[in-house]
């Protein structure tokens, strides 16, 4: 059997990250994904799941986060969902990457990393869930937009 996708559902707890990373590594090794896109996939899941857990459930209610990855020819398609408060990460102000070290504030850095490394990204709110879709090319890809 050739594994082409994984579909995971997990509670909104950071203690789930280790298992999640192990599952992603198994998937990328099985699919022989090159190191760079494999790293980008893990980073995207890490950053967005952390954000959802940290900021999506302000009242501390239990929730469910979904991680769906598909290997489609020359790309990975990643869909991250959560039932946290509505939040469009791509609508948030980008971090200030131009200031001097002393001035540098790094809120939003995780989202910036992921959107820069992705070929495309999209957000929608659907059936009470935040849905983030990302496409990661397997060949030589973006991340060329180095900050000034």
């Amino acid at each position: 059997m050739i594994i082409r996708e994984i579909d995971l559902r997990l509670p909104n707890q950071l203690s789930q990250m280790e298992k999640l990373v192990a599952a992603l590594e198994f998937f990328t090794e099985t699919c022989a994904i090159p190191p760079k896109p494999a790293y980008r996939l893990t980073l995207a899941v890490d950053e967005f799941v952390n954000n959802a857990v940290d900021y999506g459930y302000g009242d501390g209610r239990p929730g469910e986060i979904g991680v769906h990855v598909r290997h489609l020819g020359d790309a990975l398609e990643l869909t991250l969902t959560d039932d946290g408060d509505p939040f469009d990460p791509f609508n948030a102000p980008p971090p200030d990457l131009t200031g001097s070290l002393e001035e540098r504030r790094i809120g939003g850095l995780g989202v910036h990393l992921v959107r820069t490394m992705a070929d495309s990204f999209a957000y929608k709110r659907e059936d009470g869930r935040n849905v983030v879709s990302l496409r990661l090319a397997l060949g030589e890809a973006p991340a060329s937009s180095a900050p000034a």
Partner: peptide, 28 residues
């Protein structure tokens, strides 16, 4: 820097180097 102490980083593997590049840290 606030203590006047020099700090540098070395030997980044390519994937980690990319994260430093994209974050702008390589200029700092």
């Amino acid at each position: 820097r606030s203590h006047g102490v020099a700090l540098a980083i070395c030997s980044l593997v390519p994937q980690v180097h990319e994260v430093f590049d994209v974050s702008g840290f390589t200029t700092l």
